[in-house]
Design a protein around this nucleic acid. Structure first.
Lengths: 179, 179
DNA sequence: AAGCTTTGTCAACAACTGTTGAATAAACGA
DNA sequence: TCGTTTATTCAACAGTTGTTGACAAAGCTT
């Protein structure tokens, strides 16, 4: 790894933390550069600009091989969303979606990455286009539950052990949609 | 209504359209003033500033008397979310949540308004704090389904008649959570 | 060490941000 | 019509935004 890759990675990591937490429009390039201990001008050099930097934070953001390989997808989702380590460590992908999906500047990037990295592979796993309604419900539960719990903070989802059962309940219902 | 109230209302309506669609951070006061055909300075005078203007757009945003009075809440939600007129007319509340809930400047305003105007009255209607897990799931389905359909745009939720059944299916499951 | 590429620093840019106060115009009551 | 309150316009403010290009430092090859 060259020296440039080193500060490039620091910039990328700082950008991910900031963009995913506060949203694209609420983050200035000087915030990111300061957090990474680098100069602002390097962002334009390495990533071509703010938009390019954001796009780089989306590489592999929706990649979830364990889920694609699982016999019981709902169990994998429940296990990840109720893992206390991960939720504190880095901002959840769901929060990133919430913070950026409505942004006119980068919303389409998020949609495209989600479709390419997550939706389409999952659809293939579930058995093709016929399962699109079930998959859409499955995703809508993932988004709705995590967003309501982590970002909105509804008290009815606060208890972790109950939340695991709640999530399981709704994910099962999603996959069981008759069509 | 005095003349001041007239332009005040035009500013408020323009602000709602812009803030709810593109998010607080992506809207400049000159955008709003221009759309309302008024001067920028009037915003600070009438609403005390940008934040005050946004807060004003939240008055009654989550007010939903039909739902609070209904025997079958799920049916009311389905009817509203599949009404083709409304969805085109004004931006949905769900999109407003998505566009602003992660904003450090106004996210707390959105959370507070939701709790006061929607969550707490609904909890009382459902029978008190014991029903918090079911209500939280109900809300998470409303948020997840509408967000996934309207903002993310998943193809599996595109068909309106199927979507009505999908929504009904998940809302029923939410209220049927054993606890 | 000389030459060359890579990496980083610095200052400045034009555009835009929300907000303010003074000046102007309109509306209204006496 | 005068005087007063209300409504609106205008210009300017200090700060921040993303981006650029010139320059310097460091690393590496020959």
């Amino acid at each position: 790894m060259s020296k440039a890759d080193n500060t490039r990675d620091r910039l990328l990591e700082a950008a991910r933390a900031a963009f995913w937490q506060r949203g694209y429009a609420n983050v200035g390039l000087r915030d990111i550069a300061g957090a990474a201990g680098a100069d602002v001008a390097l962002i334009s050099r390495y990533f071509g600009g703010k938009r390019g930097l954001f796009a780089a934070t989306l590489d592999g953001a929706f990649h979830w091989p364990d889920l694609l390989a699982a016999d019981d997808p709902a169990a994998v989702v429940v296990a990840k969303y109720t893992n206390p380590d991960l939720s504190a460590a880095h901002v959840s992908v769901i929060r990133m979606i919430a913070a950026n999906i409505a942004d006119p500047e980068v919303g389409d990037l998020v949609r495209a990455a989600q479709k390419l990295q997550f939706h389409d592979p999952m659809l293939a796993k579930l058995g093709g286009p016929d399962k699109a309604p079930q998959l859409a419900l499955f995703i809508s539960v993932m988004v709705g539950a995590d967003l309501t719990r982590e970002v909105i903070g509804l008290p009815g989802l606060a208890d972790a052990t109950v939340y695991a059962r709640q999530l399981r309940h709704l994910l099962d219902a999603a996959l069981a949609f008759p069509g």
